[in-house]
């Protein structure tokens, strides 16, 4: 029983990441009608926002202290982190909490990136075929990941969770679970809840939902739907960016993180049903949990290699049995 609970827990954080990326993809797809192959790259950019924030916070000032000597007789270097020098203990806390802090930075940065992407490129592709959208965003994803590679190098950069959240907690007696993964799970739930509430309970959200259902009629009512969709794209970029930033302590980011997650999150969207937000969220968690179950030794004994292919296998079965996905709407992407 414990083993089952552990596997479910293990799947939750990964499922959370899948759900967050798939949520953004679905939002973009449902509103703008654009298939965004650069969405994984947005996740990756968010992760590197966390890396940069950590790098900025741990900038050091170096002074030479002539009174102290190193063993080989040169003046000792005193390195102080600027954040500590300026803010004292608050600075220390700030460095420790660099990953959560980076979310605050990620929101405006990702919003800006999203708006630039939408206004600069995506808006010209609303009327182009889906194949063109896939191709141009695929090219954009390559460009973004190469820029990140040029700046941060090709190696993965590990990030640490805040010290107070780095340990494990006992979920039930005897089952220890990394605290940060728990934090990530609740973080993803919060974000998902906030987005759904935003769509459900605000006027803006109502217009967006109406636009997802029937863009033309909303436009005929004299509502500037395009501007709202631009904001939706920015929102999706923020979600992906925050998801990426918070994921860094779990998986050290490198430049092709985005491509790895992109494929999986597209599978998640397709399984959940194109254009269905609850479907994307549910499929994200289900696939995350399934993946962690498939990694169990007991399962691998009977189906060798199942952990490598389970997600794709599920996707293939779902697409063949329920072509619209778990909660797909009629008439979305069916031409």
């Amino acid at each position: 029983m414990d083993a089952v609970i552990i596997q479910i827990l293990n799947g939750l954080d990964k499922g959370g990441a899948y759900a967050l990326i798939a949520l953004g993809l679905t939002l973009i797809f449902g509103t703008l009608g654009v298939v965004n192959f650069a969405h994984g790259a947005l996740f990756m950019l968010g992760a590197f926002v966390a890396v940069s924030v950590n790098g900025l916070l741990s900038l050091e000032s170096v002074t030479l202290d002539p009174t102290k000597l190193t063993p080989w007789g040169t003046p000792a270097e005193i390195r102080t982190k600027l954040a500590e020098e300026w803010f004292g203990t608050f600075g220390t806390t700030l460095i420790d909490y660099s990953v959560p802090v980076s979310i605050v930075v990620a929101i405006p940065v990702m919003l800006l990136i999203g708006l630039i992407m939408e206004r600069g490129l995506i808006q010209f592709f609303y009327k182009r075929p889906h194949a063109d959208q896939i191709l141009v965003t695929f090219g954009l994803a390559i460009v973004l990941q190469e820029i990140v590679k040029a700046i941060f190098g090709a190696n993965s950069i590990s990030q640490s969770a805040p010290a107070s959240l780095a340990g494990t907690i006992d979920v039930i007696s005897g089952v220890a679970y990394p605290t940060w993964r728990m934090v990530y799970f609740f973080f993803s739930l919060t974000v998902i809840g906030a987005v759904i509430a935003f769509l459900q309970f605000t006027t803006f959200g109502m217009v967006v939902r109406a636009g997802m259902a029937d863009r033309e009629t909303v436009g005929l009512l004299g509502i500037n739907i395009e501007r709202r969709f631009t904001i939706v794209f920015g929102l999706a970029a923020i979600i992906a960016g925050m998801a990426g930033a918070m994921y860094t302590p779990i998986l050290s980011p490198d430049y092709h993180l985005g491509m790895d997650f992109l494929v999986l999150s597209f599978v998640v969207v397709v399984v959940g049903g194109m254009g269905s937000i609850p479907g994307a969220v549910a499929a994200g968690f289900i696939l995350g949990i399934l993946q962690s179950f498939a990694a169990m030794e007991a399962v691998k004994q009977y189906f060798p290699g199942i952990d490598q292919i389970i997600i794709y296998l599920v996707a293939i079965v779902i697409l063949l049995v329920r072509p619209r996905g778990l909660m797909g709407r009629k008439g979305v992407m069916e031409t």
Partner: peptide, 30 residues
């Protein structure tokens, strides 16, 4: 035979899924 039952982006995703399965299996079980 399986992928062509769907069109558009679904077809792309299906072929992608099969290729990734082949790739992952080639690295592990096979």
């Amino acid at each position: 035979f399986i992928s062509l039952r769907r069109t558009g982006i679904y077809f792309s995703i299906l072929t992608l899924a099969f290729a990734q399965m082949a790739y992952n299996l080639a690295y592990s079980v096979l």
